[in-house]
Amino acid sequence: MIAALFFYLFAAVAVASAVMVISARNPVHSVLFLILCFFNAAGLFVLMGAEFLAMILVVVYVGAVAVLFLFVVMMLDVDFVELRQGMLNYLPVGATIGLIVLVELVLAAGSWVIDPKSVATHAAPTPTDITNTEALGRVLYTDFIFYFEAAGLVLLVAMIGAIVLTLRHKQGVKRQDISTQVARNPANAVEVIKVKSGQGI
């Protein structure tokens, strides 16, 4: 009974905040509603018994990705009048993408209404004797280790690419070199000169 109550609470807040993400005028409000939506999705994961996924969703998406989102959005110089002018031009493109996503969702969800046997092919049974952290670990690091490492390599290449594209060695910039600073001593840093009065150096 309590689980059902919380399910409806999380689901309702998640849907409502998802609507607010696209309807809020202020982009910062949009990101904050997105965060609320993530939270409720995490709550739904907990209700399904996938507590590891729920925590990872909060750590990765809310704790890191959304912070960067917020960071970028806050720095934007948003002109609301200009934003609304482009609305009609982009409407057909946006509507098409939305329609395609909707059709795909209906197909995915409808597949087990049409053919109930197909559920077995894409839903592995949840193991009951181990925690879901362990179950996920076995799938990722034992059964499909090659795919996991390949995905990691792709990300590494993307990261190196981003660094190569933006790295510039500027000339004439003074940089702090901690080891030389620490290695300084009076012998190579200070020069004592005897100056005769009235002559200068």
Binding site: F52, M55, I56, V58, G63, T133
Partner: peptide
């Protein structure tokens, strides 16, 4: 809970939102 330490890590990393 089973993932207690992750919960702690998640909530301590959310502290930044109040500041932002």
């Amino acid at each position: 809970i089973n993932v207690g330490i992750l919960y702690l890590f998640a909530l301590s990393s959310l502290g930044v939102y109040g500041v932002i």
